[in-house]
């Protein structure tokens, strides 16, 4: 079976899900769309020859980070305001002005980047090779050892900062 069909299918799902993420008004729904988007991207990873990355995407991204999101949102009631006037009667113009500028900017960026890709000489390249986890491991604990250490420090800092900020106020 050709790999092209599932890849493009998954890509379409990822794009649609991502769109729902940024436009959604319910935080939990948006998170679930984000999970869908991540899983679809994981499928894409698999089909462009990175099964290990696909596994990480599912386990770490969708499985850990997004679950953290869901927990935080549900336990601390992080709904915020749902910007209800976006679809309200007189909210139409507000909605338009809120989304018009960013969309123009984003489209400009999109066109420029796509143009760069199209004119570049990467046309003959095909993502047709599988990169094994073994290679990744060798590289990660060889030349990239320092980066790994720095990443571990970053995680430690994230841990400490998360603990510190989320701690309830001593006074209240």
């Amino acid at each position: 079976m050709s790999v092209e069909v599932p890849f493009y299918f998954a890509a379409t799902i990822a794009i649609i899900a991502s769109l729902r993420v940024v436009t959604g008004s319910n935080a939990i729904h948006a998170l679930l769309y984000l999970v869908v988007s991540l899983l679809a991207v994981a499928v894409c990873f698999y089909f462009i020859g990175a099964p290990f990355a696909a596994g990480l995407e599912v386990i770490v991204y969708a499985g850990a980070i997004l679950v953290l999101f869901v927990f935080a949102v549900m336990m601390f009631d992080l709904q915020g305001d749902d910007e209800p006037k976006h679809f309200g009667r007189e909210g139409n113009s507000a909605w338009f002005s809120a989304w018009f500028g960013p969309s123009i900017l984003a489209l400009l960026l999109l066109f420029e980047l796509v143009y760069i890709i199209v004119v570049s000489d990467s046309k003959q390249l095909y993502v047709s090779n599988i990169v094994e986890a073994k290679q990744v491991g060798i590289l990660l604990y060889g030349p990239y050892l320092l980066a790994v250490e720095i990443a571990s420090f970053l995680l430690l800092a994230g841990l400490v900062a998360g603990y510190h900020f989320a701690k309830p106020d001593a006074g209240s």
């Binding site: 900017l105 400009l108 980047l113």
Partner: peptide, 8 residues
């Protein structure tokens, strides 16, 4: 973003 767009 505008800066990036102009630079590009």
């Amino acid at each position: 973003a505008l800066g990036v767009i102009i630079l590009l």
